[in-house]
Structures are given as structure tokens and as C-alpha cells.
């Protein structure tokens, strides 16, 4: 049982959950700070912590005839789902919660995000926000299937959908070596579901901030923090699924995991900010014509390797 014991078992449910939330928020802070540093290009960087404090001070505004319940639900949903996806991300060798379908849980948090983001767009009864919401749905058509196949490929090689098992299965060789396509697709899909960087169309400048255009105060804080925490969770998950988790010489596992996660964040942010926006219609086109066949081929290669006993 030592292998599959969860953080909740080890520390008690509440302390473990608090630690995971703290880690999630800290990594979300790091993602935002890195992103802003890259965007500022050497200029002064507005700190995310200061922003959060300012948003907490700010009045919550409203619009004419909003769907208030669904709007608030959507805003809270983005943040809650981001934190929920952290339940199955391993910290060290254990995750907060461990089931036989961790990868499905992670995928589900991000699938329910479709609804949450769409509600954030729908709620204020405003044109720009609603346009942003629909753009997110269109974008979902592009990233959802490639993301699922990328996750499944890692699970396939490990023979388990439990994240701690996937980490353990990489004792000999990191999965990124045999599944580089799945790794890249996973990170790109993460940027897409956090609608960040080249996938920012749902909150694009051309629709005045889209889904975020009517948000102020705590609502804006929940949505921005949720996006950042999701990106951080994806980076940590990429380390667990493809980069061997905490494996590495000399240093203890959690330190390696942190170093790798921050490296993935830096890589993701630098690469993402080099590119201009990919319009959702174009993204759907390339996703279905190019990415899905390629990621399926990747899964096929991994399946053949599994049958050949490559992963042991």
C-alpha cells in the first residue's frame, strides 16, 4: 500500500488539501510572474500578488439583466476546477487523491471547464463576453481530442491511469523519449484550455477581453487565478507523465519535481509568447487535419512498444 497511499492518508485530508492548494496557488503565481516578465521584455513587471490584493479591494460590478447565478457559478467554477485538477497531480511520490482513473479525473476537470468558461461569457448578457464564450467552445473542438489522446498515450505505456503508477513506470526511461509528440501536444492543449498565449482568442484584444471583458473584483481574480493555476497544474502534470516526475540524481525527488516543473513553465511561456494568436477556426483546421492523425500515430507506436515489452 506504500506505493498508492495518498497525501490525504498520510497527513489527514484537511492539511493535505491545504498544502496542495498552497502549492497550486504558488505555482499559479510563478506562471503569471513568468508570463508577465516575458511580456514586459525587461521592463518592470507588475506583481501578481499586488493584482490579487487590488482585485479584492475592487467593487464587483454588474451589467444590465445579467444571468447572475450562472455568471458567478462560471467564475467560481474556473478556479474550483483548476484546484480540483491538482487532486491527482503527484507531489513527490503521492497525490492528494488517488483512484484507478486519475488521468480521467484530470481530463474531466478540464472538460467541465468548457461549461464554466462558456457561462462566464454567457452570464453578463454582453456581446463581447458571449463572443468570447463561443470562441472557447470552438477552440475546445480543436484541443479536446488531441489532449485526450496525449493523456491516454502516457497511461497506455504505464498500463495504468493512476498518475503515481505512470511516474513509477518511468523509472527506466522518461516517457518523453518515446512519446515526444504526446508531450508537445499536451502542453499546447494546456495553453488552449487555459486560453493563454497563442490560444487567447476567447479573451482576445479584438473582442475587448472576450469572456473577461465584464469581470471586475473577485470575479476577475477567480478567472485569472484559475487560468494560471490550470497552466501550473498542466506543467506539473507534464513532468509527472512525461519527464519522470521526481526522478533525478543527488537531489531529493520533490526538488527535482519543482525544478522540472519550473523549467516546463519557462519553456511553455517563452515558446507561447513568441507566437501570434492562432484564430480558433485555423486551430480547429490544423487540429483535425494534422494533430489528431499525428497523435494517433504516436499512440500506435507506443502500443506496439507495449506489445513488444519495451516498457517492461
Amino acid at each position: 500500500m506504500g506505493e498508492t497511499a495518498t497525501l490525504a492518508d498520510a497527513w489527514g485530508a484537511v492539511p493535505a488539501a491545504l498544502v496542495v492548494v498552497a502549492v497550486a496557488l504558488a505555482l499559479g503565481w510563478a506562471v503569471t510572474a513568468t508570463d508577465r516578465a516575458v511580456l514586459a521584455g525587461g521592463g518592470p513587471v507588475p506583481g501578481p500578488g499586488r493584482d490579487a490584493a487590488r482585485l479584492l479591494l475592487e467593487q464587483r460590478r454588474t451589467t444590465p439583466a445579467p444571468d447572475r447565478l450562472l455568471w458567478r457559478l462560471g467564475c467560481a467554477g474556473v478556479a474550483v476546477l483548476a484546484l480540483a485538477s491538482w487532486a491527482v497531480v503527484p507531489l513527490g511520490s503521492r497525490s492528494l487523491w488517488s483512484t484507478s482513473a486519475d488521468l480521467v479525473w484530470f481530463n474531466a476537470a478540464e472538460a467541465v471547464l468548457w461549461a464554466a468558461v462558456w457561462l462566464v461569457g454567457w452570464g453578463p448578457n454582453a456581446f463581447a463576453a458571449l463572443t468570447g464564450g463561443y470562441r472557447f467552445l470552438a477552440q475546445g473542438l480543436a484541443y479536446e481530442l488531441p489532449l485526450m489522446f496525449a493523456l491516454i498515450t502516457a497511461g497506455l505505456a504505464a498500463g495504468s491511469l493512476r498518475t503515481t503508477d505512470v511516474v513509477a513506470a518511468q523509472a527506466g526511461l522518461w516517457f518523453v523519449v518515446t512519446m515526444p509528440v504526446a508531450f508537445v501536444v499536451f502542453l499546447a492543449a494546456a495553453a488552449a484550455f487555459a486560453f493563454w498565449g497563442p490560444f487567447d482568442a476567447p479573451a482576445g484584444t479584438d473582442v475587448a477581453g472576450g469572456v473577461t471583458s465584464e469581470l471586475s473584483g473577485v470575479d476577475r481574480l477567480l478567472v485569472s487565478a484559475g487560468r494560471a493555476v490550470f497552466l501550473g497544474a498542466a506543467a506539473a502534470m507534464a513532468v509527472a507523465l512525461f519527464l519522470g516526475g521526481g526522478a533525478g540524481p543527488w537531489l531529493p525527488g520533490p526538488v527535482w519535481q519543482l525544478v522540472k516543473t519550473l523549467a516546463v513553465v519557462a519553456l511553455l511561456v517563452r515558446a507561447g509568447r513568441r507566437l501570434p494568436l492562432l484564430r480558433p477556426d485555423r486551430a480547429v483546421e490544423v487540429a483535425w487535419v494534422v494533430v489528431i492523425p499525428v497523435v494517433l500515430l504516436q499512440a500506435l507506436v507506443v502500443a506496439v512498444l507495449v506489445l513488444a515489452g519495451f516498457y517492461g
Partner: peptide, 10 residues
């Protein structure tokens, strides 16, 4: 809470 009549700067 009353109608703003206008929203989002759009």
C-alpha cells in the same frame, strides 16, 4: 443593480 443601459465598452 439598475440597468446600466450600456456595457463593456463594446
Amino acid at each position: 443593480d439598475e440597468p446600466d443601459g450600456d456595457h463593456g465598452g463594446m
